[in-house]
Amino acid sequence: MRHRQCGIVKVDACIGLTVAALGGLLALGLSGISFGAGYDRIGPRFFPYVVAVGLLVLGGWFLAAGFLRKQAAPLTTSETGMEAPVNWTPLIYLALALILNLLLLDRAGFVIASAIQFWLVARAFGSRRLFRDVFVAVMLSVICFVAFSRGLGLTLPSGILEGIL
């Protein structure tokens, strides 16, 4: 993660690096696109080329702005922007919430995956009432599952609770 390495002061330089890196990635990928049938004067490579160049130019602009601080645009919402301190505990809970959800969705099923996710997100937002949170988490997941799969005909993975729900 490039962002963590940059100091909080150099927001613009961070943007510049990331944007230029994305542009570079697109430019590298250009060679992987084969030309079309040939009757088209502008092939499938043209737009990716434009976007890549655009990103590289923007990245350069932000890098320049980041290093020549005077040209950098002042942030109007600085207290909510990059200058604000990051709270790490909720980030860990949220990362767990997202990763576990991905791992469990197919294997354990929607209800279990969602209930765990809900509980972890609630913890990330500072809730510490275990029983209440788990209760709400399970209720919400079960209701969603029943309402959306039975009521609206969506196919949600039932996982290990197959046959019970």
Binding site: A97, N101, L102, L105, D106, F110, A113, S114, Q117, F118, W119, V121, A122, R123, A124, F125, G126, S127, D133, V136, A137, L140, S141, C144, F148, L154, T155, L156
Partner: peptide, 28 residues
């Protein structure tokens, strides 16, 4: 309560995205 609101938002986000193509890849 905020914890419930955002917990719910994420559950719905996963639900809606999964239902697009029934794919965990989309959710990721």
């Amino acid at each position: 309560p905020q914890p419930f609101l955002y917990g719910g938002i994420l559950v719905f986000a996963a639900l809606g995205t999964y239902s697009l193509n029934n794919s965990v890849f989309d959710v990721g």
